[in-house]
Design a binder for these strands. Structure first.
Lengths: 228, 228
DNA sequence: TCAATAGTGTCTGTTAGACATTATGGA
DNA sequence: TCCATAATGTCTAACAGACACTATTGA
């Protein structure tokens, strides 16, 4: 990399879409654009990113981007893909995109340059950034049944109603309470703790944690839940 | 595939894992390593790749890599991700990985430098290449219920038994014939043609094609088919 | 007490898997 | 004819969704 001339154009950047539950939907962490350098003055918010400095790996880069934007502790991240369409605020050709899931209630910001936006209330974004955000959310959604991503949006212990709300939020539809719990029990996914939480009126809810038991993929029939 | 001089470190390459069904399992297209320039002389096969020339997009790059390796017509490709661990045969820091699915019976090679290998009978690969291959296969497998990837491994018309074999190959387990067909019918995924095919003994099978009807995602309950 | 939420038991229609049966060709 | 494969009907156990009900707290 250092053999290349000091180009105006970075070869690639690592961009991080951080998501957290907020007001019954997802919220994304955006960075205020410092100057008016961009051609499109109306775009004032961008997806946080970093560029490689000295042989850092992609994972380290994504972690650094996260540390710079949320002050929060390490959160779960996974790579989404590489994007090249449209301009990037940092001038990079390629955006290597990571999505990070921040547990409910831990969505902080490191400075005033960062802010969380609900997906239904987004500021204007460039084409590439908008596409990256959309693909990030889809990636999380589509892995919902395969990977325990819903749990990454919750603290270590949670109530089953909270867990169901996360699933409903990600799936975009209501779920049946009894069925949801039966499926959870069948998969031995969660383990009860001996704590309860009382919130406002109503019976207190028992707190659960993600189970530690080895689960194996059920030998269930094939479903053709194709999109489109 | 005209390569940059080896001394120059490419910022990134586009690598393509082409997969096709072969002998009841998947096979991958590899390129013979031309010279003995690598440190590890035992590695003689690599995943085909290209490097950017003049502002080509990622998709175009992957298509070019494919055209260079299989002489075949355009096949279905999708991006898998970006990899940076370990050395790359072309010296690139980053590998942007695409997976291409080549229909059964169309797995040709463009020259003697390329060869198809069954996954159970692979030659030695570098760490990054081995990882990329593994992730590619997993990506196809994991999207099986969401995207019609199985059909990309078949010609335009096929028998239901062939389709089931592809699913079994990808899932790594046997499926129930009647259930498989019921699920297909329920999803209105395939449409019968008026052709039949007789192969060896036994009753001839009707040929089907992928249906054109709009399918929407069923409002089915949540499954927790978590891995590991 | 009422209101609100947690958690569970029961019923029913649907579906996955097992099994059996028919259909249709080749050896 | 026997054999192999396609295609389909029937039965049953499991499960998803609906509904009702109990449980437990705060107002």
């Amino acid at each position: 990399m250092s053999r290349e001339p000091r180009a105006r154009r970075q070869p690639y950047s690592v961009d991080v879409v951080a998501l957290t539950p907020r007001d019954n939907e997802l919220a994304v962490l955006l960075e205020r654009r410092g100057d008016g350098a961009g051609r499109d003055k109306s775009v004032r918010w961008v997806i946080p990113w970093t560029v490689s400095k000295s042989g850092e790996g992609l994972t380290e880069l994504s972690q650094r981007a996260l540390r710079n934007s949320t002050g929060a502790a390490t959160t779960w991240t996974t790579q989404v893909g590489a994007f090249s369409d449209g301009p990037h605020p940092g001038g990079s050709e390629l955006s290597i995109l990571y999505v990070a899931l921040v547990p409910m209630g831990q969505a902080t910001v490191s400075s005033e340059n960062f802010e969380w936006f609900r997906l239904s209330d987004l500021p204007a974004l460039t084409e590439r950034q908008s596409q990256m955000l959309q693909v990030s959310v889809a990636a999380v959604r589509d892995r919902l049944d395969l990977y325990p991503v819903a749990f990454k949006l919750l603290p270590a212990t949670f109530t089953l109603s909270e867990l169901q709300h996360i699933y409903e939020l990600l799936l975009g539809r209501r779920l049946h309470k009894a069925s949801f719990r039966r499926a959870l029990a069948a998969a031995a996914l969660v383990e009860p703790t001996d704590e309860w939480r009382s919130e406002g009126r109503g019976r207190p809810a028992q707190l659960y944690s993600l189970g530690t038991r080895k689960r194996r993929r059920g030998k269930r029939g094939v479903r053709f839940d194709l999109l489109g």
